[in-house]
Design a binder for these strands. Structure first.
Lengths: 126, 126
DNA sequence: CTGTATCCCATCGGATACTG
DNA sequence: CAGTATCCGATGGGATACAG
């Protein structure tokens, strides 16, 4: 931990970490980007399936987010013209796999944070 | 990678990862939370130092974010009444150290993403 | 089904001025 | 220095209706 601490401070001092994180947040920050990507990690989905999978998102916002994610190379939009009505499948690109470490780190942290909150709540109630 | 892939899908299927990431984003998501925490990782700072360190943030927003971060146990506000004018030092709590993995993961990803963008840009220009 | 367009309100957040 | 108060324009995003 001590070693890590020195490590992270060095990176911060050099402003590299600051810029890198800012850049990451710019691209995958926001309320919906990661939840959408996670939903697609599990399985490629069509528009309305995706809408149902990402709890609380509206069609309008989902549509905008998908355009953004596609423009940034995270997802691919596959259209099946032969279906009637036409169906569209959204799937992750290979590049999205590079986000796995980030997603898992966030997931791990979120999980232990939730546990900490529950413990704190119990403490108050007793 | 293949093993990891199965691993991450299992977690997603169980909805655990989805909820954990959503929880994490709820607490440390947003434009400024992590940049502020990173700035304090390097060194504890006073209000205006912090404002200068976090590029682009306004006093109003910084003030709000700090209250939020303090309420969630990430930072501690240390007041030095004996100084004139009174000075206030913001420092990370022990709990913030748990974010190191998340910060480093985001930093690593952001850095390689930036490199990829630069490479792509060069490709276009040539 | 897969979106888009419009309306409209709530929230965000910058600028500025001000207080202790 | 360390913020807070107010004003106000920009943006986000829900609801609804509609189109291909």
């Amino acid at each position: 931990m001590e070693q890590n601490c020195i490590d992270i401070r060095d990176q911060i001092m050099s402003q590299k970490l600051v810029k890198s994180v800012a850049d990451a947040l710019y691209v995958i920050g926001g309320k919906w980007k990661l939840p959408i990507i996670i939903a697609l990690f599990a399985q490629s989905k069509r528009f309305n399936d995706l809408k149902r999978a990402v709890e609380g998102i509206s069609a309008r916002v989902l549509s905008n987010e998908l355009k953004d994610l596609e423009a940034n190379g995270f997802i691919k939009r596959r259209v099946y013209e032969e279906d009637t009505p036409v169906s569209v499948l959204y799937e992750l690109t290979e590049y999205s796999n590079s986000l796995e470490e980030v997603v898992l780190a966030l997931g791990n942290w979120g999980e232990s944070h939730l546990l900490k909150l529950k413990a704190a709540l119990k403490e108050v109630q007793s």
